[in-house]
Write a protein that binds this DNA or RNA. Structure first.
Lengths: 192, 192
DNA sequence: AAGAAAATTGATAGATCGTTCTAGAGAAGC
DNA sequence: GCTTCTCTAGAACGATCTATCAATTTTCTT
């Protein structure tokens, strides 16, 4: 599996975006990190940094949704799945020195008021996450409107906890957010 | 009240950080926005961008905590106060075209893995927010450990909802997060 | 009023940014 | 063999970045 140059560029960019954000990451640094010739970056992404950024956002978003799907498939009920999802997020944070959190949150905040193309890319990803999580809770037996509320709550808790964990270098926020998320899911299931 | 040059620099920097983040904001732009001579920026902040950033983070953090205190003082019980806090956040987002959200979240994510001085500044601010909110819920009658959990949940919901609202250009995430926060506070109060 | 000290200022420096461009290497098709 | 296309490679460009510093203005002291 000799990972193609384009794949290496996408992977490296995704990692650099997570750690340094969009404006904090340079094209030269991307080429160096991916061990790719500088010219190749513009060969594969003629649209430059913006095109590369948009593709990284969308592919990262897809991968993260698959991660939730995998964890959901490993657990019988929604309460356990959500608990495991937060526990996994906390563990990943610890293992990566609080670098690997949400793949696109930093970029999303950076570009929200400065670059409409990239803002739309992040909005599309988020909309898909919400839709996917909503369907999951509907399938688990929660009424649709309530399921959407729980989906937003779960993902908001997750994103917010990422911010606190990375800043404070502690997984306590993620653990407590996980408990709150579990409580909300349980209440929603009992209401139906 | 002829707002001093230093104050204007701090205010303008805070606003630019909210909209563009730390790396996305230049010293030249700060001077221009504050209508301050460029040299004055380095006169008042000899430590350069890092010193200016640290001071902006700490003053913005203080101001945002005061905002919560004001809203808390305007409402009798905690449930109503939390509801009003989220409603106010949503209204501000709409009024500012989704620019004025958390004053330091963008910077916090940007610097978490790249600048330990600024990371510590954001961590200090967050710790004070959590401590303040915890005391508030304790005073409202929630058992201490539970109060800390609710404080983390409320602020995580808020921060996460900010991300979604800004990206999706909608206040729906904030409204739903507010409902979830209210539900969590109500449950905590009933448990005691 | 005069001179010293402090505060303020914008031009400038050196590095790095995203991007463009030309040139060459290697494989596939005719 | 020759052409064509994809990919590699890095030099060069103008703009912009953070930071410095000598010059100027303002304030204070005598």
């Amino acid at each position: 599996m000799p990972s193609s140059t384009k794949e290496r560029i996408l992977d490296s960019t995704a990692e650099l975006f997570r750690r340094q954000g969009y404006t904090g990451t340079g094209m030269k640094q991307i080429a160096a990190e991916a061990r790719a010739p500088f010219g190749s970056v513009y060969h594969f992404f003629p649209g430059g940094k913006e095109e590369l950024g948009a593709e990284v956002i969308r592919t990262s978003g897809r991968m993260y949704m698959q991660l939730f799907a995998v964890i959901a498939g490993e657990h019988r009920d929604a309460v356990q799945a959500v608990g495991a999802f937060f526990a996994g997020a906390g563990q990943t944070l610890r293992e990566t020195e609080y670098a690997d959190a949400c793949p696109i949150a930093t970029v999303a905040l950076e570009v929200a008021s400065t670059n409409d193309t990239l803002r739309e890319a992040t909005a599309d990803v988020f909309a898909q996450w919400i839709a996917g999580a909503t369907e999951y809770f509907v399938f688990a037996g929660v009424e649709r409107a309530r399921a959407r509320e729980v989906a937003f709550a779960m993902l908001s808790l997750l994103e917010g906890a990422f911010i606190f964990c990375r800043a404070m270098r502690s997984t306590e926020p993620m653990e407590l957010a996980g408990e709150s998320a579990v409580a909300l899911v349980r209440a929603a299931l009992e209401a139906s």
